[in-house]
Simulated scan of single mutants.
Amino acid sequence: MARVVVFDETGGPEVLRVVEEPAGDPGPGEVRIRLEASAVNRLDELTRSGASPMPVRLPHARLGCEGTGIIDALGEGVDGFGVGDAVLITAVPDMTSNGTYADYTVLPAARVVKRPAGLAPAKAAALWVAYSTAYGALVEKAKMRPGDTVLITAASGTVGLAAIQIANQIGAVPIAVTRRTAKKDGLLAAGAAAVIATDQDDLAKAASLHTGGAGADIVLDSVMGPGLADLAAAAKRFTGTLVTVGWLDPRPAPYPSNAITTHRYMSFEHTLDPAAVRRIAAFLFAGLRTGALDPAVDRVFALEEIVEAHRYLESGRQAPGKIIVTGGTST
């Protein structure tokens, strides 16, 4: 028997519970993964609480869209992988059926890539969702180029930190936006070329100052809400691009119409495309080799501490980096 986190109703962290059930066998084209570590993401929180637009299969729904582990069984017709391979999970489009908060999960082989040698499980679990989202939004959607100025909201979050590193890897100029002046030094240390703290700075004026009056070539927004209009005003007129990747502010956020290009980006747009996954993996793994990319881990919880992990996420007390839940087969 193996451990798995399930919930029978949406609500607070206390709805999560750990149960034991068979690990499951892979079908044709599938692999079974013995999970070593999984990340706790905002999407997990939204799904658990009932705030996500994604359907939730209740009761006995699973949770977790990101993880890493070792392949321990292969289904018929799987090529390119072997038992014992360390892998990253690239997409769990229906995590309420086969989520990663577990000892094992069974997924199509097309949803995993081999884990780079030497990448520790905790860091591996912190890599894919944040970095593939930032890469997909900036490189695939916004066509970021060397020299572009990139305004990044929620910059101390995992996607924001990934975007700063990816912009630097390309040779673009990342300008971090945060709500708190106290986070300025940390964001500069993380690689931001400049930091705008909206508890002190006027966003549009500061963006104009840091871009020589031109406005940002690209705005990457994880917040949405009414502030979207101010972000659009900080973009370069006519040629600027606004890409939204999250919805931390649930209030209405009408898209601006001030002659800039806008995109609503969801990572499954690329993580379900095998060709795009190969491009993402090549880019991210190159960044890991050179040290340009370095996924941060804030705190590690055991699987049995999943309720505490979600409470910690909701508290807002976490330092920059992912919250990780460790796997490991139960006895």
Rank of each mutant, 00 (worst) to 15 (best):
residue 243 V to R: 02
residue 19 V to C: 13
residue 320 P to M: 07
residue 2 A to C: 12
residue 41 N to H: 15
residue 228 L to R: 07
residue 176 A to P: 07
residue 125 A to D: 13
residue 293 L to D: 05
residue 8 D to C: 11
residue 206 A to M: 10
residue 133 T to N: 06
residue 102 A to Y: 08
residue 142 A to K: 00
residue 302 A to M: 00
residue 12 G to C: 04
residue 38 S to T: 15
residue 72 D to L: 04
residue 104 Y to D: 11
residue 212 G to Y: 07
residue 277 V to G: 05
residue 144 M to P: 00
residue 245 V to R: 05
residue 250 P to D: 10
residue 307 V to A: 09
residue 68 T to H: 00
residue 228 L to P: 05
residue 124 A to N: 14
residue 108 P to H: 08
residue 148 D to Q: 03
residue 56 V to W: 03
residue 105 T to H: 03
residue 45 E to S: 15
residue 109 A to R: 13
residue 278 R to P: 00
residue 69 G to E: 00
residue 331 T to C: 05
residue 58 L to H: 01
residue 26 P to V: 03
residue 243 V to W: 02
residue 203 L to T: 09
residue 186 G to L: 02
residue 100 T to I: 08
residue 90 T to L: 13
residue 140 E to L: 12
residue 206 A to T: 09
residue 66 E to Y: 00
residue 214 A to T: 08
residue 62 R to H: 02
residue 236 K to A: 14
residue 25 D to L: 12
residue 97 S to G: 12
residue 137 A to V: 11
residue 307 V to G: 07
residue 90 T to E: 14
residue 156 S to Q: 10
residue 98 N to R: 15
residue 48 R to N: 07
residue 52 S to V: 07
residue 114 K to Y: 08
residue 274 P to I: 03
residue 137 A to M: 10
residue 101 Y to K: 05
residue 278 R to T: 11
residue 135 Y to I: 06
residue 64 G to H: 03
residue 309 A to S: 13
residue 19 V to F: 10
residue 113 V to Y: 04
residue 96 T to G: 10
residue 268 F to D: 06
residue 292 A to R: 14
residue 292 A to I: 08
residue 181 T to V: 08
residue 112 V to N: 10
residue 122 A to D: 15
residue 84 G to Y: 14
residue 115 R to W: 02
residue 217 D to V: 00
residue 222 S to F: 01
residue 29 G to I: 03
residue 38 S to Y: 07
residue 130 A to D: 15
residue 75 G to P: 11
residue 66 E to P: 03
residue 93 P to K: 13
residue 218 I to A: 08
residue 52 S to Y: 14
residue 127 L to H: 12
residue 302 A to Y: 00
residue 305 E to K: 01
residue 34 R to I: 01
residue 271 T to K: 06
residue 255 Y to S: 09
residue 60 H to K: 09
residue 93 P to Q: 13
residue 79 D to G: 14
residue 45 E to C: 14
residue 231 L to V: 03
residue 6 V to G: 06
residue 225 G to S: 04
residue 260 I to L: 10
residue 235 A to T: 03
residue 101 Y to C: 01
residue 55 P to R: 10
residue 72 D to G: 00
residue 161 L to R: 14
residue 281 A to N: 08
residue 181 T to I: 01
residue 104 Y to E: 04
residue 55 P to F: 00
residue 63 L to P: 09
residue 110 A to R: 14
residue 127 L to V: 13
residue 313 L to Y: 13
residue 78 V to N: 12
residue 126 A to R: 12
residue 138 L to A: 01
residue 153 T to I: 05
residue 274 P to H: 05
residue 328 G to Y: 11
residue 323 I to Q: 09
residue 25 D to Y: 02
residue 166 I to E: 08
